[in-house]
Simulated assay, not measured.
Amino acid sequence: MARPREFDIEVALHDAIDVFWTLGYGGASMEELIKGMGLTKGSLYKAFGDKRSLFLMALQRYIDERLTRYEVGLTRPGSPKAAIREILLDYVKRATDPFDTRGCLVTNTTTEMATRDPEIARVLAGMFARLEDLFAGAIARAKASGEVDASKDERALARFFVLTIQGVRVMSHMRPDPRHLASSVEVALSALSSGPISRTPDNPAPAH
């Protein structure tokens, strides 16, 4: 009978996410991963394979957890338009959190690896496609309920909001004032209606 593993695979995988998230793929040596995951070299290789295989597993787990958060937020009961606004403004809060300057693992990986690793590029493209689907679904429901003009193209708007999220994350590294980023989100949200753009609060709620 095979000897049972002496560590929790899920805990170890989340520890790997933290290492890659902090150091990037290129900066995360096997020594750093072994240290961060609290495993021996043999245990790491046996459970996860090589560094690249481990990274793909960690990235997919990170993506799955983020998409679940978006799905819960964008499919909740109530106003779809309000849900979209809350999702985007919540992203601003998280992107400007002064206690976590690592950024987004997806955005970091896109800039570091997408142009030179086709498999990772496909994983990232799948994530963005799923996020677009979630936004498009929320916009379609908003159209059906009369919150958004029926002539609006939900796919074009969904792609626009995905681009907005990525833009917020990139710009948060250069100009992290949440008021500036929140005002840009309000401009993006104005695409959902012909009404006036909502005024951004002078003192938005702090990030958590």
Rank of each mutant, 00 (worst) to 15 (best):
P178M: 10
D133F: 01
V162N: 12
L181D: 15
E32V: 03
A156Y: 07
M30T: 01
E186V: 05
F99A: 09
A144T: 09
D149A: 15
K51I: 07
I84Q: 00
I120M: 09
S184A: 11
D15C: 13
L67D: 07
R169F: 00
V185D: 03
A144N: 07
F161H: 10
D149N: 15
K35Y: 05
H180G: 14
A205N: 04
D64Y: 04
N203L: 10
R116G: 13
L59S: 10
A188C: 12
R122P: 05
I139Y: 07
D133Q: 01
A138S: 14
V123D: 02
M1D: 08
H180D: 15
R61Q: 14
F128D: 00
I197S: 11
A82E: 12
D177V: 06
T111A: 13
T96R: 01
E32D: 07
A12T: 06
K41R: 09
K152S: 13
V106S: 13
G73L: 12
I165K: 02
G126K: 07
S145V: 10
D18C: 04
S79H: 08
Y70S: 14
F99L: 11
T109E: 05
M57N: 04
S194H: 12
F20H: 13
T40N: 06
P118R: 05
A95H: 01
G36E: 07
L88W: 09
G38K: 02
A83M: 02
R159I: 09
M174H: 01
R169Q: 04
G137C: 06
T110V: 09
I63P: 05
